[in-house]
Amino acid sequence: MNTPSRPSTYSISELAKEFDITTRTIRFYEDKGLLTPQRKGQTRVYSPADRTKLKLILRGKRLGFSLEESRDIIEMYSPGQNNEQQLKALINHVRSRKATLQQQLHDIELMMLDLQESEQRCIDALQEMGVTDT
């Protein structure tokens, strides 16, 4: 059974379409030095490695990592090498992000309780005044 092969290069519009982002976003990552496509005249030509980097940048963004954090982790990768340092760094970033989100979740839960209590006090005060439509 033949499996479709991946292209050896990608255009900016192909990557934008595949990842559902704008070409402007890809150029932004280029300007930040995260992607370095080849050039054929004015045309950008992205390699499979560029595609993988873009995928990792977008995953890092979804996880709440800064571009600098994503860059640091991506730059640690060495194909064919033991990437223990990269994996440990990624684990540390993930754990840190999880701790931050847990704290934010706790803060939101407390805020929701405060809002519910405030709302109920207002409803009770209105009821004491004889107002029934709240």
Rank of each mutant, 00 (worst) to 15 (best):
S96E: 11
K98T: 10
T36V: 03
P79I: 05
L67V: 13
L101H: 07
G60K: 08
L113H: 10
F65P: 05
S66I: 07
A99E: 15
M129G: 05
P48A: 02
I91D: 12
R51W: 02
E119K: 14
K88E: 14
Q42E: 08
E109N: 13
L63E: 04
P7F: 01
L87H: 03
T100R: 09
T36Q: 13
T25N: 09
S96T: 12
D31H: 12
L105W: 08
K17N: 11
K17M: 06
S11M: 02
T43F: 11
K55F: 03
D20K: 14
D124R: 10
E128T: 09
I74Y: 07
Q127I: 06
G41L: 02
T132E: 12
S13C: 01
R62M: 12
S70N: 06
Q81D: 14
N82Y: 01
F28T: 04
A125P: 00
D20A: 13
A89G: 03
P79A: 08
Q42I: 05
N2Q: 06
M112R: 14
R71E: 15
D20F: 03
M112H: 11
T100A: 10
E69F: 02
K55P: 00
L63K: 06
R6E: 15
A16D: 02
S96L: 09
Q104Y: 03
I12P: 08
E119I: 09
N2P: 08
Y10T: 04
A125N: 08
L105I: 13
Q103K: 15
E14W: 00
Q116M: 09
A125G: 01
L90H: 01
R27V: 07
R6V: 02
L87Q: 09
Q104D: 13
A49Q: 13
P7D: 06
Q104E: 15
S96N: 12
Q42D: 08
N92V: 04
N82V: 06
Q102C: 07
L56Y: 04
E14P: 01
M129D: 07
T134S: 08
D107E: 15
R62A: 14
S13N: 09
M1V: 04
Y46F: 15
I12Q: 09
Q86K: 13
G80L: 07
R62L: 13
I123R: 14
S13T: 14
D114Y: 04
E128F: 01
H93E: 12
